[in-house]
Simulated assay, not measured.
Amino acid sequence: MGETKKFLDAQGTKKVIDWAKGKFIQKEANKGLSEENFTPAYKEQLDNLVSTYATKSDMTTKLAGKVDTIAGKTLTTNDYTTPEKQKLAGIAPGANANVIETVKVNGTNQSVSGKAVDIKVPTKVSELTNDKNFATVSQVTDAVSKAGKLTKEIVTTLPAASSAKDNVIYMVKNSGGVSGDAYSEYMLVSGAMEKIGTTATEVDLSNYVTYDDVQGITVSELDAMLV
Rank of each mutant, 00 (worst) to 15 (best):
G2Q: 06
E3S: 13
T4C: 07
D9S: 10
K14T: 12
V16N: 08
W19M: 06
W19A: 10
K21D: 06
K27I: 08
E28I: 09
E28G: 09
A29M: 09
N30T: 08
K31D: 02
K31E: 11
L33V: 08
E35N: 09
F38S: 02
T39E: 02
P40R: 13
P40Y: 10
K43Y: 08
Q45K: 12
Q45T: 10
N48T: 10
L49R: 11
V50D: 08
S51V: 13
Y53Q: 07
Y53A: 06
K56Y: 09
S57L: 06
S57A: 14
T61R: 12
K66V: 09
V67C: 03
I70N: 02
K73F: 11
L75G: 12
L75T: 12
T76G: 05
T77P: 00
N78W: 05
T82F: 11
P83E: 06
E84I: 06
K87R: 11
L88N: 09
L88M: 14
A89V: 02
G90C: 03
I91L: 15
G94Y: 02
G94T: 02
V99A: 14
T102V: 15
N106R: 10
G107Y: 06
G107Q: 07
T108R: 06
V112E: 05
S113V: 15
G114E: 13
K115V: 02
V117M: 07
D118I: 11
V121Q: 04
P122R: 11
K124G: 03
V125E: 01
E127T: 06
K132E: 10
S145M: 06
A147C: 01
K149G: 10
T151A: 13
E153N: 15
I154M: 03
V155H: 04
T156Q: 13
T156C: 00
P159C: 10
A160K: 15
S162M: 01
S163V: 11
N167S: 10
I169Q: 05
Y170H: 07
M171H: 00
V172E: 01
V172Q: 01
K173D: 01
S175N: 15
S179V: 13
A182S: 11
Y183F: 14
S184L: 03
Y186S: 04
V189S: 05
S190H: 04
S190V: 05
S190I: 00
K195Y: 04
I196L: 01
I196E: 01
G197A: 09
A200M: 11
A200E: 05
N207K: 14
A224M: 01
